[in-house]
Simulated scan of single mutants.
Amino acid sequence: MFRLSNNLVGILNIFSFLLSVPILGAGIWLARRADTDCEKFLEKPLIALGVFLMVVSIAGLVGACCGVSWLLWLYLLVMFLLILLLFAFTVFAFVVTNKGAGEVLSGKGYKEYKLGDYSNWLQKRVNSTKNWNRIKSCLIDSKVCEAYAKKYAKDTVVTDFYNEQLSALQSGCCKPPDSCNFTYVSPIVWNAGSTTTYTDSDCSAWGNDSNVLCYNCQSCKAGLLDNLKRDWKRVAILNIIILVILIIVYSVGCCAFRNNQEDNAFWKRRGYP
């Protein structure tokens, strides 16, 4: 009869194999149907994750339930490397998201965001023209500012708009910075007046076109980083839970590997190959 640890490893890998099927399917579907850069960006990671989960699950399942020690050893090696990588990423996520916060404005319901307040590593990622063009394409495709414009269309006077609780992306990408002193017309239409020189470069980057707005502004990059900061902190907390689970699974796998070694030694003593 199989040992308990072998059975547990087999059951866990059946679940991970079943999980890999829809992930791989979603990646293949996106590869065939993706129209935007944002969707195309997701297809390769999904396919890679699905294939990785499927291969590792098969190795663990066959190694534990069929007594194939070298497959189980390979499975444990991959698990060990995964634990190390996840631990390193969790520490890294806490470090790079430790800086940065929105600036509270007097008499305004929303905050404004400055790129220089965030970690240098994150700033370099969004200041890359190639990276930002892809991110900007995703923001436009996701219609962040279109939804914002519809939600606050009722604000016909600027005092009403100033009381709104805007998200970091809405504040950074869908309106000009308050320091520009533009004249409010609607949430996505602001008149610059006759002034042509600004102390803030975001003011000259603003455009009333729905595909321009403040997508080229430093404040938009900062708003994205503020969102990213919150998301990464949540992911880091989730990673800690996953790490604990992986360590438990790894420990059970080690027991299954030891069982395989003992079983092989038992049969060899009786003259079986």
Rank of each mutant, 00 (worst) to 15 (best):
N7Y: 10
N7K: 14
V9E: 06
V9W: 04
L19M: 04
V21M: 03
L24A: 07
A26K: 05
I28M: 07
W29S: 01
L30K: 05
A34V: 01
D35F: 04
D35R: 13
D37E: 09
C38V: 15
E39K: 09
K44M: 12
S57F: 04
I58S: 04
G63N: 03
V68I: 11
L76P: 14
V78S: 12
I83W: 07
L85T: 09
L85E: 07
A88H: 15
F92T: 05
G100E: 02
G102D: 06
E112A: 03
D117N: 09
W121K: 12
V126Y: 02
T129R: 08
N131T: 01
I135R: 03
K136D: 02
K136E: 03
S142L: 13
K143H: 15
E146V: 14
V158P: 05
L166W: 06
A168L: 04
Q170T: 14
S171P: 06
C174S: 08
K175L: 10
D178P: 06
N181F: 12
V185F: 00
W190I: 05
W190K: 03
A192G: 12
S204P: 00
S204T: 11
G207R: 01
Q218Y: 13
G223M: 08
G223H: 08
G223V: 05
K229P: 12
D231W: 13
K233P: 00
K233C: 10
V235A: 08
I245K: 05
I248A: 13
S251R: 13
C254E: 11
E262W: 06
E262M: 05
A265D: 13
G271E: 03
